[in-house]
């Protein structure tokens, strides 16, 4: 199935904005609306567009799909680590560092707290999982057509 030039151009042009929006939502999550899951879904939608417009072979060339499982499970591990590490300091799981009401290190307007790391893990998990699932189904369709 061949898609029109228009679709392909739009798909290619939209990829970077999708990733940027995803990134913005990811790191602004703690001061504003957004979180890792939404960011992951938006980024994955950007990738889905590439699959639709170019077919899976081209899309895989743009992104190391083999690494998708590693990204997903790496993200899960990162989140788990953030959740469990406070135990070693004798704190409850999921304890925020710095805690509520404490002084936060600012990087511009971004607040550096451990939940952000947790959300980066969630982002990786969702993005990896979604792209992996899309890739699986895209290959399946491709195999059926040939």
């Amino acid at each position: 199935m061949k898609t029109s030039v228009m679709t392909r151009v739009v798909a290619r042009v939209l990829l970077v904005p999708a990733l940027v929006v995803a990134l913005a939502i990811l790191i602004k999550g703690y001061a504003d609306t957004g979180d890792g899951f939404n960011a992951g879904v938006i980024a994955a939608l950007g990738m889905l567009l590439q699959y639709v417009a170019f077919g899976y072979e081209e899309a895989e060339r743009m992104m190391p799909v083999r690494l998708v499982a590693v990204i997903a499970f790496g993200g899960l591990l990162l989140s788990l680590a953030v959740a469990l590490l406070p135990l070693f300091w004798g704190l409850a799981i999921f304890t925020h560092v710095p805690g509520p009401g404490e002084e936060v290190i600012h990087l511009g307007t971004v607040e550096l707290i451990t939940p952000v790391v947790f959300d980066i893990g969630v982002f990786m998990l969702v993005f990896g999982f979604a792209v992996g699932a899309i890739d699986l189904l895209a290959r399946a369709i491709h195999r059926r057509e040939t």
Partner: peptide, 18 residues
């Protein structure tokens, strides 16, 4: 209370890669 939960979770994630 979290020992088993954390251990099985972490191992499950690691085992998924193997």
């Amino acid at each position: 209370i979290v020992f088993t939960l954390g251990l099985t979770w972490t191992l499950a994630v690691l085992l998924s890669l193997l």
